[in-house]
């Protein structure tokens, strides 16, 4: 009875668009869903540093190098904001990292794909960040206060990420024949993975309905995906590039672009980490984590010594 009343009050707050704060009562499932979703989001930012970091030392100009460095740094920052938001739910960062290393926590499967050429820095910024932004803009309105606030900050900082990607695509698409081919090849490889970033169709999505009701998510996977496709196709045409989907066409009735069925076998294979990319990314993260263990211990020991000497002084 007590819980039912609380649940009812909770839903009323959600319906009135009042943000839920860490100390407020919340259903256990709401808390668990947020822990899963926010940490997954944080892991994605952190693992997402790797495919781009791959090109940091080979960026073709000083300007491009600076921008890429600042962009990857932002990703580290965004991961950090999100870990901190997730920590307000009572789980420590150490635990999140452990779950990531043990394969218990997921991150966006798109970061398991390799970045083969410089054009991939364009395609990742334009398509992958473009898709992420559609999702993040929507999540600014999420019902959990710390998550919503992190999203607002992230959206503000992300604004340059997609632009830098698109700028690279423009340079290549308007460049030599070889550069144009490079841009087209990158678009071909990143288009479908970027579409899959929005997750399973609404009809297949295990958590969707409850998440929408609690306003953890504000729009469904398919709605967000459609918005991304519609805006991106226009941009692609501007570049004079084609999309690897013969069924892509504007539907006069719905005013949206129709597209081919998504290859969900590939999606689930990548999500489940069946590819070589997943091993590579996680091993890189584990190695950095283990290599840094003695540094963290030293910093901790030093702070203990400082505190001790203060107390005895």
């Amino acid at each position: 009875m007590e819980n039912e009343r609380k649940l009812e009050e909770f839903q009323q707050k959600i319906d009135a668009n009042i943000k839920i704060e860490p100390k407020d009562w919340m259903p256990e499932k709401y808390r668990q869903t947020l822990i899963r979703q926010i940490s997954q989001h944080a892991h994605s930012e952190i693992i997402g540093m790797q495919p781009e970091g791959n090109w940091l030392t080979r960026a073709p100009s000083l300007r491009a190098k600076k921008i890429l460095m600042a962009k990857i740094q932002d990703e580290a920052g965004h991961g950090l904001y999100l870990y901190c938001a997730a920590e307000t739910l009572g789980v420590k960062r150490e635990q999140f990292l452990q779950w990531l290393h043990e394969g218990k926590a997921k991150y966006s499967s798109v970061f398991n794909y390799p970045t083969l050429t410089w054009a991939d820095m364009g395609a990742v910024g334009w398509l992958v960040d473009g898709a992420a932004i559609v999702n993040q803009v929507s999540l600014q309105g999420t019902s959990y206060g710390p998550y919503s606030r992190a999203m607002v900050k992230i959206c503000m900082e992300e604004s340059f990420h997609q632009r830098q990607g698109f700028e690279i695509m423009v340079q290549l698409a308007k460049g030599t024949e070889e550069q144009k081919q490079m841009a087209q090849d990158a678009l071909n490889r990143w288009w479908w993975p970027s579409i899959m970033m929005f997750g399973p169709h609404d009809s297949e999505s295990a958590h969707s309905n409850q998440s929408l009701k609690w306003k953890i998510k504000r729009e469904s996977n398919d709605e967000l995906r459609q918005r991304y496709i519609d805006k991106t196709i226009e941009q692609g045409h501007h570049l004079g590039l084609t999309f690897p989907d013969p069924n892509l066409k504007f539907n006069e009735e719905t005013k949206n672009y129709d597209y081919s069925p998504i290859d969900w076998d590939e999606f689930w294979n990548v999500v489940k980490g069946n590819g070589p990319g997943n091993k590579l990314r996680i091993n890189h993260h584990i190695k950095a984590h283990e290599d840094g263990k003695w540094v963290r211990e030293a910093a901790k020991a030093y702070s203990n010594k400082i505190n001790l000497s203060k107390k005895t002084a």
């Binding site: 952190i46 540093m49 790797q50 970091g53 940091l56 030392t57 190098k65 460095m69 990857i72 740094q73 580290a76 920052g77 991961g79 950090l80 870990y83 890189h284 993260h285 190695k287 950095a288 290599d291 840094g292 263990k293 540094v295 963290r296």
Partner: peptide, 15 residues
């Protein structure tokens, strides 16, 4: 330093 990206002992230090 660019080569060290994503390899720091703690996320704050990477930034």
């Amino acid at each position: 330093i660019a080569e060290y990206c994503s390899k720091a002992p703690i996320l704050e230090e990477d930034l």
